[in-house]
C-alpha cells in the first residue's frame, strides 16, 4: 500500500469535479424544499438537462450555450411538476416520481442520434497569478467556469434566503403556507418560481455530467445522481453552505474510495458507499431533535387557498 501516490491537491480538485453535478441539483432542490415543495423528480430534470446540453453543444460547438439551454429546458420541464402540484393539486411525491419517469424516457428518445458522439467540453479557466500558486493553484484555480459558477449560485442562494425580502417570503411560504397566504403572499407563484429555479439548476447539473465530467451522452447516464442530491439537501439541513459542504463530502467519499483502491488499499466498498446515507440520517436526527431547525414545516403538504 502506498498512499504517497495520492496527491491531496489533485484529490480535492477531482472531488470538486465529481461533486458539482450533485451540488447544482441539490442547491436548487434546497430552494424548492425551502418553499415547502418536495420535488422527487430531480433525477428526471437532471437527465433532461444532460441530453439537452449535449445536443446543443454538439450542434453549435458551444458548450456554454449547451449549459444555458439545459437550464432553460429543464426549468420548463419542471413546470410540468409545478402545474400539476400547484394548480391541479396533485400529490407531490407521486408527481415527482412521474417526472423522473418521463425525464428518463424523454431524454433517451431525444438522445438516440447522439449516442457515441463526442462533445466539445469547457476549457479550464486560465486564471492569472492564482493558478500559479503551488498546490492551491492546481487544487482550486485550475477548473472550468461551471465549478466556480456552482459555488457562486450557492452564495447567491445564501444571500437571497438570508438577506432579501423575497427570500423571507419564500421561507415563510415554506414554513406556514396558510399564514403566508393570510399575509397576502402569493404562495403558488412563489412556489412555481422556486420549482423552476430547481429545475434550471438540476438541468445545469445534468449538463455538467454530459459536457464536462464524462463527457458524452448515454441513456440513463445520471445513474442516480438526482437521488443523491435529495439526500444532500437533508444532510445540509436546508442550508446553502452546508449543501456545498455536503455535496463535496458525498462526492469526496466516492473519489476517495476510488483513490484508496488505486493506491492498493483493500476496502469494503459497500460499507463505504452506504456511509453517506447513514450519516445523513444521523444528521437529520440531530437537527430534528433540536427542534425547529429541521425540515420546512409545510414540506410536501398541498396548499389550497380557502378564502
Amino acid at each position: 500500500m502506498d498512499f504517497s501516490s495520492i496527491n491531496p491537491a489533485l484529490l480535492i480538485a477531482s472531488l470538486m469535479v465529481s461533486a458539482t453535478p450533485i451540488l447544482l441539483a441539490a442547491i436548487g432542490e434546497a430552494v424548492v424544499e425551502k418553499s415547502g415543495v418536495l420535488n422527487l423528480g430531480v433525477e428526471g430534470m437532471m437527465i433532461v438537462g444532460a441530453v439537452v446540453g449535449f445536443i446543443i453543444a454538439v450542434n453549435t460547438d458551444a458548450p456554454l450555450l449547451g449549459f444555458i439551454c439545459a437550464a432553460i429546458v429543464s426549468g420548463i420541464f419542471s413546470m410540468i411538476f409545478g402545474i400539476l402540484t400547484q394548480y391541479l393539486k396533485s400529490n407531490q411525491v407521486a408527481t415527482g416520481l412521474g417526472l423522473t419517469l418521463v425525464g428518463l424516457g424523454l431524454s433517451a428518445l431525444l438522445g438516440r442520434p447522439y449516442e457515441g458522439m463526442k462533445s466539445p467540453t469547457l476549457k479550464a479557466l486560465d486564471i492569472p497569478f492564482l493558478g500559479d500558486i503551488p498546490v492551491l493553484g492546481k487544487m482550486l484555480f485550475s477548473h472550468d467556469l461551471m465549478i466556480y459558477f456552482s459555488v457562486f449560485i450557492v452564495a447567491m442562494v445564501w444571500w437571497f434566503l438570508k438577506f432579501t425580502h423575497a427570500g423571507m417570503v419564500l421561507r415563510a411560504v415554506g414554513e406556514n403556507h396558510d399564514a403566508a397566504h393570510a399575509l397576502g403572499y402569493k404562495v403558488v407563484r412563489v412556489r412555481m418560481l422556486a420549482i423552476m429555479f430547481g429545475g434550471a439548476t438540476s438541468g445545469l447539473g445534468g449538463a455538467y455530467i454530459s459536457l464536462a465530467r464524462v463527457p458524452q451522452w448515454t441513456e440513463g447516464m445520471t445513474a442516480g445522481a438526482g437521488w443523491i442530491a435529495l439526500a444532500i439537501v437533508v444532510f445540509a439541513s436546508w442550508r446553502p453552505w452546508r449543501v456545498l459542504f455536503g455535496a463535496y463530502i458525498f462526492g469526496g467519499v466516492t473519489v476517495l474510495q476510488l483513490n484508496l483502491q488505486a493506491a492498493g488499499a483493500s476496502i469494503p466498498v459497500e460499507y463505504l458507499s452506504m456511509s453517506p446515507y447513514l450519516i445523513t440520517i444521523v444528521v437529520l436526527v440531530i437537527i430534528s431533535s433540536r427542534g425547529n431547525q429541521g425540515a420546512p414545516a409545510s414540506l410536501g403538504r398541498p396548499f389550497h387557498a380557502s378564502s
Partner: peptide
C-alpha cells in the same frame, strides 16, 4: 426524535441497496 420519515425512509433505500450488493 421527530425526524422526517419521508427522508429517513428514502435514505434507508440506499443503505438497503448497499446491503443487498454486499
Amino acid at each position: 426524535l421527530n425526524a422526517n420519515e419521508i427522508l429517513v425512509s428514502l435514505m434507508l433505500v440506499y443503505v438497503a441497496e448497499s446491503i443487498l450488493a454486499s
